[in-house]
Design a protein around this nucleic acid. Structure first.
Length: 644
RNA sequence: GCCGAAGUAGCUCAGCUGGUAGAGCAACGCUCUCGUAAAGCGUAGGUCGUCGGUUCGAAUCCGAUCUUCGGCUCCA
């Protein structure tokens, strides 16, 4: 049989050779560092016999598959330590994740606190040093059921119920045996550095109605120095946190007297937001959108017609009674726009009709979900609804994708694209199945025609239609949905929307809901973290600080300031009675893109000494040259220079 | 909503096992007139998240509650 290596080379091996033996045949060092093998994309134990020709990768720590194996085994080590310290604990599941692993466990009435993590960590290290071998055991379903009912592990029994006889395996290391399909690293030996990061509640099988187990998150490394480096990286990431920078840079504020999840936009944040809105508005005008404005509340009947009420009743603020009518704080803008559409007889010649609004909506998000600007109870969508014919649909979807990609490319942001489709096992969806399959097919075709790199996520659709979601990671690697494009065949029915076609007959339009930023609040949070607060010049609340070397040059400094303001720049002059070093430091801390130092030389030569934030002294420029340079930077919406 | 953690000056934090609240930065005033990341001196600023309890005495111990953070669930 022939094994093909990642570099394309092939070698003959006898059937039944193990991954470890293959590694040994290459080099003793590889054999020493090997954690697992990947055969045709599937991860296997190093000790598993290889029975047929395949593509093989011997996974070391540097390989993602190797890390996953390492962390999976670490989860078992965590469970073993917990079993030793808390013999009564029942075990759920313990998988590897992108940055470590977790294990869900039932501690009964015992409340696990962070003090326990220390003890468990020490026990894990102690057990790792015993270099226990991970032993794979194949077992029949009946024996597995018997074993875990004797052990008294109800969650494991629940899992075994869902497995087929003949494919059940256990892994045993030291005194701990777990139901597990594997694979694992050969022994606990390489686990040298361990950090248990936090405790969380997690429902069994992710179901709120099930018991809440205690989840312990951790991360492990083969070297202590790697753990130290990881923890430093975590600290660095926290410095980009929009909640921290949002306060330091005066972007927004959440005030408990105003209310949870109700951000107050401070002057700097408002400047950024209005600039973003102007940017998108300009682009939308170019692309044939028309802007509308609708109120913040609407009659309850509106939402009954749309179906949002009572479908989302428990995530909306309760209706307000006025005289004999009930009104709701609007949880979305679409119904209002639909009524604008149906306010007059529409001809096919008017379509596509694209109605846009920066519309503020209010949703009653669960208190535990609120998070800075990322998850709030009042936010503004850069919403638009496109009413079009079936024939126009694909082109309109393409336009929306193009606009969304244009927006994210402007900021050099990396977005993941998800096609959110229905899950036929769930019954939350409105409309006829035929509409759904048609809409999903159309979305898929467009995505393929544009060559998008996407994943399909069944079950992520909204109740009225499938969508294309744009997803971005924050500083801590958490994923947030920003932009979205949704195809809707349901609302035209519910609102009885029609247009008169060229055949003089009434037809149903299709609606596209789309929001490139998604929410101004969430997008701003991502923007802050993406740039770590160092905004591009065109978005910076204060673009330049004029710094006179001493107050002898205050007049020239003020003249420069006024001239720059005249050109439309946002400028301040630092007239404080401080040394220039202090003023520069202050401007750097405030992340102001340009500092203009004005002293004797500059006054004589009608020049400025230019310093760029994070970069340093750029030398002297004629004042007029400087204006040309920064005007271009703003007009081209240039991103800040990468450096440091 | 649920699990865990945290709330002391505008910000960052100290305050050990209960004995009348402290620093740095920021702010304000004065002095210095200064060349690319922190000049010097001084002033002011806190009912220690809130409410209740234990105690002669609570920032410190106990309970409740509010808010924030890390997760789970949810997300039109």
């Amino acid at each position: 049989m022939v094994l093909t290596f990642p570099d394309g080379s092939q070698r003959e091996f006898k059937q039944g050779v193990t991954g470890f033996e293959v590694a040994q045949s290459i080099s003793p060092r590889l054999a020493r560092e090997a954690l697992s093998v990947t055969l045709n994309g599937k991860i296997r134990d190093l000790s598993a016999p290889i029975t047929e020709s395949a593509h093989i990768t011997v996974n070391k720590w540097d390989d993602e598959d190797g890390q996953q194996t390492f962390w999976h085994s670490s989860a078992h080590l965590l469970a073993e330590a917990v079993q030793e310290l808390f013999p009564e604990v029942k075990f759920g599941i313990g998988p590897p994740i992108s940055n470590g692993f977790y294990y869900d466990m039932d501690f009964g009435d015992y409340k696990v606190t962070e003090a326990d993590l220390q003890k468990i960590e020490s026990k894990m290290l102690e057990l790792a040093r015993t270099k226990s071998v991970f032993e794979r055991i194949e077992i029949s379903k009946s024996d597995a059921l018997k074993l875990f009912s004797e052990k008294g592990d109800p969650y494991k029994l629940d899992l075994i119920e869902g497995l087929e006889d003949g494919q059940i395996t256990l892994y045993k290391q030291g005194g701990f045996t777990d139901l597990c399909r594997g694979p694992h690293i050969p022994s606990t030996e390489p686990i040298k550095a361990i950090k248990l990061l936090h405790i969380a509640g997690a429902y069994w099988r992710g179901d709120v109605k099930s018991k809440q187990l205690t989840r312990i998150y951790g991360v492990t490394f083969p070297k202590k120095s790697m753990l130290d480096e990881y923890l430093i990286q975590l600290e660095e990431a926290k410095k980009r946190d929009h909640k921290k920078l949002g306060r330091e840079l005066g972007i927004y504020l959440i005030d408990s007297m105003v209310g949870r999840g109700l951000p107050l936009w401070l002057p700097n944040g408002t400047l950024i937001r209005r600039t973003l809105e102007a940017f998108l508005r300009e682009e939308q005008v170019r692309r044939g959108y028309k802007e509308v404005i609708t109120p913040h509340i609407g009659n309850l009947e509106l939402y009954k017609t749309s179906g949002h009420y009572p479908y989302y009743a428990d995530s909306q603020f309760d209706p307000i009674q006025v005289e004999d009518e009930h009104y709701m704080l609007k949880p979305m803008n679409c119904p209002h726009h639909h009524r604008i559409y149906s306010s007059s007889l529409r001809s096919y010649r008017e379509l596509p009709l694209r109605l846009a609004e920066f519309g503020t909506v209010y949703r009653y998000e669960q208190s535990g979900e609120l998070n800075g600007l990322s998850r709030v109870r009042g936010f503004t969508q850069d919403d638009a609804h496109i009413y079009c014919t079936h024939e126009q649909l694909k082109d309109e979807i393409k336009n929306c994708i193009d606009l969304t990609r244009f927006v994210f490319n402007t900021f050099d942001m990396q977005v993941d694209i998800r096609l959110s489709f229905r899950d036929d096992k769930k019954d939350k969806y409105g409309g006829e199945a035929g509409f759904w399959s048609r809409a999903q097919a159309e979305i898929n075709e467009v995505a393929d025609e544009l060559g998008l790199d996407y994943v399909i996520a069944p079950g992520e659709a909204s109740f009225y239609g499938p969508k294309i979601d744009f997803i971005i990671k924050d500083a801590l690697g958490r994923k947030w949905q920003v932009g979205t494009i949704q195809v809707d065949y349901v609302m035209p029915e519910r609102f009885d929307l029609t247009y008169v076609g060229s055949d003089n007959q009434k037809h149903r339009p299709v609606i596209i809901h789309r929001a490139p930023f998604g929410s101004m609040e969430r997008f701003t949070s991502i923007l802050i973290e993406h740039f770590a607060g160092d905004f591009p010049l065109w978005l910076s609340p204060v673009q330049m600080m004029v710094i006179p070397v001493s107050d002898q040059f205050a007049t020239t400094a003020t003249e420069y300031e006024l001239q720059l303001k005249e050109k439309g720049f946002r400028v301040e002059t630092d007239h404080r009675n401080d040394k220039i070093g202090a003023k520069i430091r202050d401007a750097e801390t405030r992340k102001i893109p340009y500092m203009l130092i004005v002293g004797e030389r500059e006054v004589e030569q009608q020049s400025v000494s230019v310093r760029r934030h994070r970069i340093g002294d750029l030398g002297s420029l004629k004042f007029s040259e400087f204006i040309g340079k920064v005007s271009a930077e703003v007009n081209n919406r240039e991103n800040p220079p990468k450096q440091k």
